[in-house]
Protein backbone atom coordinates (compact mmCIF):
# COMPACT_ATOMS: atom_id res chain seq x y z
CA UNK A 1 0.00 0.00 0.00
CA UNK A 2 1.23 3.48 -0.91
CA UNK A 3 -0.97 6.49 -0.21
CA UNK A 4 -0.03 9.87 -1.60
CA UNK A 5 -1.56 13.08 -0.31
CA UNK A 6 -1.13 16.50 -1.84
CA UNK A 7 -1.61 19.61 0.29
CA UNK A 8 -2.00 23.02 -1.34
CA UNK A 9 -2.98 26.59 -0.53
CA UNK A 10 -1.58 30.05 0.22
CA UNK A 11 1.71 30.48 1.99
CA UNK A 12 0.77 31.30 5.57
CA UNK A 13 -2.18 28.91 5.78
CA UNK A 14 -0.06 26.23 7.37
CA UNK A 15 -0.06 24.03 4.29
CA UNK A 16 3.45 22.67 4.82
CA UNK A 17 2.71 22.19 8.51
CA UNK A 18 -0.23 19.94 7.58
CA UNK A 19 2.12 17.79 5.53
CA UNK A 20 4.84 17.67 8.17
CA UNK A 21 2.39 16.69 10.91
CA UNK A 22 0.88 13.92 8.78
CA UNK A 23 4.33 12.64 7.79
CA UNK A 24 5.49 12.59 11.40
CA UNK A 25 2.44 10.72 12.65
CA UNK A 26 2.66 8.16 9.86
CA UNK A 27 6.35 7.61 10.73
CA UNK A 28 5.41 7.12 14.37
CA UNK A 29 2.89 4.49 13.33
CA UNK A 30 5.76 2.65 11.67
CA UNK A 31 5.09 3.47 8.05
CA UNK A 32 7.62 4.43 5.44
CA UNK A 33 7.15 8.07 4.63
CA UNK A 34 8.43 10.90 2.46
CA UNK A 35 7.56 14.57 2.68
CA UNK A 36 8.32 16.71 -0.35
CA UNK A 37 7.65 20.46 -0.17
CA UNK A 38 7.48 22.71 -3.20
CA UNK A 39 9.99 25.39 -2.38
CA UNK A 40 10.59 28.54 -4.28
CA UNK A 41 10.98 32.26 -4.09
CA UNK A 42 7.63 32.47 -2.35
CA UNK A 43 6.35 34.34 0.65
CA UNK A 44 3.22 34.72 2.69
CA UNK A 45 0.33 34.89 0.24
CA UNK A 46 2.22 33.03 -2.49
CA UNK A 47 1.50 29.43 -3.36
CA UNK A 48 2.53 26.58 -1.12
CA UNK A 49 2.17 22.86 -1.60
CA UNK A 50 3.68 19.59 -0.47
CA UNK A 51 3.36 15.89 -1.15
CA UNK A 52 3.32 13.24 1.56
CA UNK A 53 3.76 9.60 0.57
CA UNK A 54 2.96 6.94 3.14
CA UNK A 55 3.50 3.24 2.62
CA UNK A 56 3.97 -0.14 4.27
CA UNK A 57 6.72 -0.80 1.71
CA UNK A 58 9.70 1.27 0.58
CA UNK A 59 8.51 4.41 -1.18
CA UNK A 60 10.02 4.48 -4.64
CA UNK A 61 9.21 7.99 -5.72
CA UNK A 62 8.41 10.91 -3.41
CA UNK A 63 7.01 12.68 -6.48
CA UNK A 64 3.35 11.92 -7.01
CA UNK A 65 1.82 11.33 -10.44
CA UNK A 66 -1.74 10.92 -9.21
CA UNK A 67 -2.31 11.55 -5.50
CA UNK A 68 -5.07 9.69 -3.67
CA UNK A 69 -5.99 12.69 -1.56
CA UNK A 70 -5.92 16.34 -2.47
CA UNK A 71 -6.32 19.03 0.18
CA UNK A 72 -7.01 22.49 -1.23
CA UNK A 73 -7.08 25.50 1.03
CA UNK A 74 -7.71 28.16 -1.65
CA UNK A 75 -9.34 28.58 -5.08
CA UNK A 76 -6.19 28.80 -7.25
CA UNK A 77 -5.05 25.43 -5.86
CA UNK A 78 -8.36 23.84 -6.79
CA UNK A 79 -8.02 24.97 -10.41
CA UNK A 80 -4.36 24.05 -10.65
CA UNK A 81 -4.43 20.65 -9.02
CA UNK A 82 -7.90 19.09 -9.45
CA UNK A 83 -6.77 17.29 -12.61
CA UNK A 84 -3.86 15.72 -10.78
CA UNK A 85 -5.83 13.54 -8.39
CA UNK A 86 -6.48 9.89 -9.20
CA UNK A 87 -9.91 8.63 -10.19
CA UNK A 88 -11.90 7.75 -7.04
CA UNK A 89 -9.66 10.01 -4.98
CA UNK A 90 -10.94 12.45 -2.42
CA UNK A 91 -10.66 16.24 -2.54
CA UNK A 92 -10.89 18.11 0.76
CA UNK A 93 -11.67 21.73 0.22
CA UNK A 94 -11.78 24.77 2.41
CA UNK A 95 -15.35 25.76 1.56
CA UNK A 96 -15.16 28.99 3.59
CA UNK A 97 -13.15 30.69 0.89
CA UNK A 98 -13.60 28.40 -2.14
CA UNK A 99 -16.90 29.05 -3.88
CA UNK A 100 -16.26 26.79 -6.87
CA UNK A 101 -16.51 23.02 -6.80
CA UNK A 102 -14.39 20.50 -8.71
CA UNK A 103 -15.45 19.92 -12.31
CA UNK A 104 -14.55 16.25 -12.11
CA UNK A 105 -17.29 13.70 -11.51
CA UNK A 106 -15.03 10.76 -10.66
CA UNK A 107 -13.81 12.03 -7.31
CA UNK A 108 -15.32 12.38 -3.85
CA UNK A 109 -15.47 15.87 -2.41
CA UNK A 110 -15.40 16.75 1.27
CA UNK A 111 -16.26 20.38 1.99
CA UNK A 112 -15.03 21.74 5.31
CA UNK A 113 -15.69 25.40 6.11
CA UNK A 114 -12.49 25.43 8.13
CA UNK A 115 -11.88 29.17 8.08
CA UNK A 116 -15.38 29.76 9.50
CA UNK A 117 -14.99 27.11 12.17
CA UNK A 118 -11.62 28.60 13.06
CA UNK A 119 -13.20 32.02 13.58
CA UNK A 120 -15.87 30.45 15.80
CA UNK A 121 -13.04 28.96 17.85
CA UNK A 122 -11.53 32.42 18.07
CA UNK A 123 -8.28 31.78 16.19
CA UNK A 124 -8.23 32.04 12.41
CA UNK A 125 -4.82 30.38 12.25
CA UNK A 126 -6.05 26.90 13.22
CA UNK A 127 -8.00 26.41 9.96
CA UNK A 128 -5.33 23.95 8.83
CA UNK A 129 -5.69 21.78 11.94
CA UNK A 130 -9.48 21.75 11.50
CA UNK A 131 -8.90 20.45 7.99
CA UNK A 132 -6.51 17.83 9.39
CA UNK A 133 -9.25 16.70 11.80
CA UNK A 134 -11.55 16.08 8.85
CA UNK A 135 -8.77 14.49 6.82
CA UNK A 136 -7.64 12.10 9.56
CA UNK A 137 -11.21 10.91 10.15
CA UNK A 138 -12.00 10.26 6.49
CA UNK A 139 -8.61 8.91 5.41
CA UNK A 140 -8.10 6.77 8.52
CA UNK A 141 -4.34 6.57 7.85
CA UNK A 142 -3.43 7.23 11.47
CA UNK A 143 -5.56 7.48 14.60
CA UNK A 144 -6.40 10.85 16.07
CA UNK A 145 -4.44 9.92 19.22
CA UNK A 146 -1.23 9.38 17.26
CA UNK A 147 -1.80 12.52 15.25
CA UNK A 148 -2.46 14.78 18.24
CA UNK A 149 0.50 13.42 20.17
CA UNK A 150 2.72 14.08 17.18
CA UNK A 151 1.35 17.56 16.70
CA UNK A 152 2.19 18.40 20.28
CA UNK A 153 5.75 17.15 19.84
CA UNK A 154 6.21 19.20 16.68
CA UNK A 155 4.76 22.37 18.19
CA UNK A 156 7.07 22.02 21.19
CA UNK A 157 6.24 21.86 24.85
CA UNK A 158 6.75 25.60 25.38
CA UNK A 159 3.49 26.43 23.70
CA UNK A 160 0.96 24.86 26.02
CA UNK A 161 -1.83 27.27 25.02
CA UNK A 162 -1.34 26.29 21.39
CA UNK A 163 -1.73 22.61 22.23
CA UNK A 164 -5.12 23.30 23.74
CA UNK A 165 -6.51 25.31 20.82
CA UNK A 166 -5.08 22.81 18.35
CA UNK A 167 -6.82 19.98 20.17
CA UNK A 168 -10.13 21.87 20.01
CA UNK A 169 -9.62 22.71 16.35
CA UNK A 170 -8.79 19.10 15.50
CA UNK A 171 -11.92 17.87 17.31
CA UNK A 172 -14.08 20.42 15.51
CA UNK A 173 -12.90 19.23 12.10
CA UNK A 174 -13.09 15.59 13.14
CA UNK A 175 -16.70 15.95 14.30
CA UNK A 176 -17.74 18.01 11.30
CA UNK A 177 -17.34 15.18 8.79
CA UNK A 178 -18.78 11.68 8.61
CA UNK A 179 -16.25 8.87 8.39
Amino acid sequence: MIIKTFFSGFGGQGVLMMGISLANSAMNKGYHVTYLPAYGAEMRGGTANCTVAIGDEEIASPVSSEPDYLIVMNSPSLFTFQNKITSDGTIFLNSSIINDRPKRQDVKVVCVPCADIALELGNSRVANIIMMGAFIKVSDIVTSEIYLKCLETIMGSRKKALAEINRKAFAAGYDYVKA
Partner: peptide, 10 residues
Protein backbone atom coordinates in the same frame (compact mmCIF):
# COMPACT_ATOMS: atom_id res chain seq x y z
CA UNK B 1 19.86 18.13 -5.75
CA UNK B 2 17.24 20.52 -4.47
CA UNK B 3 14.73 17.74 -4.00
CA UNK B 4 17.10 15.66 -1.86
CA UNK B 5 17.91 18.79 0.13
CA UNK B 6 14.31 19.78 0.80
CA UNK B 7 12.63 16.38 1.12
CA UNK B 8 12.03 14.91 4.57
CA UNK B 9 12.44 11.20 5.24
CA UNK B 10 12.89 9.19 8.42
Amino acid sequence: DGMMGQMMEP
